[in-house]
């Protein structure tokens, strides 16, 4: 009935070979070990690096590995590699569209650029809480907080 029907035929009967599946499992396991291992050695390895930079590196590594793992699962376990372009597009769609939500950082990132005339630091404290102004009265400003040493 569909115009695609004829050549879709080869896609849908594809049986992913046993060893391909095993290899994928191994890859996933190795990546899991790598990401855990990095998390353990990161505090040592990034000792001299400024915290913002270190956090960026950690984020990139952890999310990068997770991304590769997800792609492996989607492509091989879920068989998208052997499917039509339509399926590939839909497989990517959700993940791409999720990124649209990051537009809201244009809000969170710039809220405090606005200067409000007549606001002293105290009135700012009393104003409705914004996400980066913890609500508890009398709390010390966040930069002075002592964070327990994570590096043992």
């Amino acid at each position: 009935m569909s115009e695609h029907a004829s050549h879709a035929h080869d896609h849908s009967h594809h049986i992913t070979p046993f060893f391909t599946l095993v290899k994928t499992l191994m890859l996933l396991a190795v990546l899991m070990v790598v990401t855990i291992a990095w998390a353990q050695i990161a505090p040592e390895a990034l000792k001299g690096v400024p915290p913002a930079m270190a956090s960026l590196i950690n984020n990139l590594i952890a999310m990068g590995i997770a991304f590769v793992k997800a792609v492996a699962v989607i492509m091989i376990f879920m068989g998208v590699k052997y499917q039509s372009h339509v399926v590939k597009t839909y497989a990517a769609l959700g993940f791409v569209w999720f990124l649209m939500m990051f537009i809201m950082f244009a809000d969170y990132g710039t809220r405090h650029w606005e200067s409000v005339r007549g606001w002293t630091p105290e009135t700012k404290q009393m104003a409705l809480p914004r996400a980066d102004e913890p609500f508890e009265p009398g709390m010390p400003p966040r930069k002075d907080i002592h964070i327990p040493d994570q590096h043992h």
């Binding site: 244009a106 809000d107 990132g109 710039t110 809220r111 650029w113 606005e114």
Partner: peptide, 8 residues
């Protein structure tokens, strides 16, 4: 007017 950043 919901306290969203003006720039956004």
């Amino acid at each position: 007017v919901s306290s969203q950043s003006m720039y956004q």
